[in-house]
């Protein structure tokens, strides 16, 4: 068993792996994450010709393909001279970190590099560490700098912080809890601290923080996907949240995609607007509701926030 994941050298400007979601359905996440990073004086260098990481699906069919897909992205980051890759999607963080774990074994690395070479991609030396964008913001800027950047505090908003499953899990891959700059796997708190710094009331004991949204089977097992998404909203309602903040595009899309079914099963009063955490941060940093792309979300946080006096 590996003893923690070493964070190699840190880059002043790490590579940024967008992944399919941030370039597609999660556009609002991408745009607002960039706004937030800019305001905090942080920057990331985009991996241009990236490819899909394979998420949790490909590994069920082929180990080598499921490692080669993320390895190609990590290799591109290394050929940009970077030792650090930041991704905004929990699934991407998981599979990139999983590839790192796999190529630590010399035989696997040899095989994967042969595949990369054959496919015309740069080879991978295993030296790029992976971080979630939330961890990146928390370690590089931290609550203090976030507080200083706030122009319009989110006073009066009660937020349920939803981290989802693969943000830190499993620690074997992500190094969570025993690597500098990584959040706690059982009781993550980075999001709580950043949103608190934005002036929101954060439900730090939100019991659905790290439950699964069922997004892995969003289409293939509707009963489970709807039940899990609903339990996040139900729990948010019980705890008195106005909004649910997410850090994962799959979680966001999975919950929002099932709103009609959740409404039918549990009633209108369970529904809560669901937003990317960067949308809230951007709002707190002075962006308008439109600039924070809050109209993108199917759960219509724009209507709710306008009713609370946010323009």
């Amino acid at each position: 068993m590996s003893a923690g994941v070493s964070r190699g050298p840190t880059d002043s400007v790490p590579a940024y792996y967008p992944g399919c979601s941030l370039d597609g359905l999660g556009k609002a996440y991408e745009v607002t994450a960039q706004q937030v990073l800019r305001r905090l004086g942080l920057s990331l260098d985009r991996i241009v010709d990236y490819n899909c990481c394979g998420a949790t699906e490909v590994k069920n069919l082929s180990q080598d393909v499921s490692v080669a897909l993320p390895a190609r992205n990590l290799a591109l980051a290394r050929s940009m001279g970077r030792h650090q890759v930041v991704a905004a999607c929990n699934g991407c963080v998981y599979s990139l970190a999983r590839a790192n774990d796999a190529v630590r074994e010399p035989a696997t690395r040899g095989r994967i590099n042969a595949t990369l070479e054959e496919g015309g991609a740069p080879t991978y030396d295993g030296e790029a560490s992976v971080q979630h964008v939330l961890e990146f913001i928390h370690t590089r800027a931290g609550p203090e700098r976030v507080r200083a950047a706030v122009r319009r505090p989110l006073t009066g908003l009660t937020v349920a912080p939803y981290y989802g499953c693969l943000y830190t899990r499993p620690k074997r891959y992500t190094g969570a809890g025993r690597t500098p700059g990584a959040d706690d796997p059982e009781h993550p708190h980075f999001l709580d601290e950043l949103l608190e710094a934005c002036g929101a009331k954060v439900l730090t004991d939100f019991s659905a923080k790290t439950i699964c949204c069922g997004g892995g089977h969003a289409l293939s097992d509707l009963d489970v996907a709807v039940a899990f998404s609903a339990s996040i909203l139900n729990e948010a309602r019980r705890a008195g949240a106005d909004l649910v903040a997410t850090i994962c595009p799959l979680g966001q899309i999975n919950i929002e995609n099932h709103l009609d079914r959740i409404r039918a099963a549990y009633g209108e009063e369970v529904l809560r607007p669901v937003v990317y955490f960067t949308q809230l941060m951007s709002l707190a940093f002075g962006a308008s509701v439109a600039e924070a792309r809050l109209r993108d979300n199917f759960s219509r946080p724009d209507l709710f926030l306008r009713s609370r006096g946010f323009a």
């Binding site: 399919c20 597609g24 010709d49 490819n51 082929s62 080598d64 393909v65 054959e118 991609a121 792309r293």
Partner: peptide, 30 residues
């Protein structure tokens, strides 16, 4: 909102054809 990247709007990765072919073979072989 510019979030539908399908058909002609779909994302393209440069140099993918070669890599994709290799992976497709690997998948079958596996």
């Amino acid at each position: 909102s510019g979030r539908l990247r399908t058909g002609p709007l779909a994302h393209r990765t440069r140099g993918w054809r070669q890599f994709g072919n290799v992976l497709r073979e690997k998948l079958k072989e596996d």
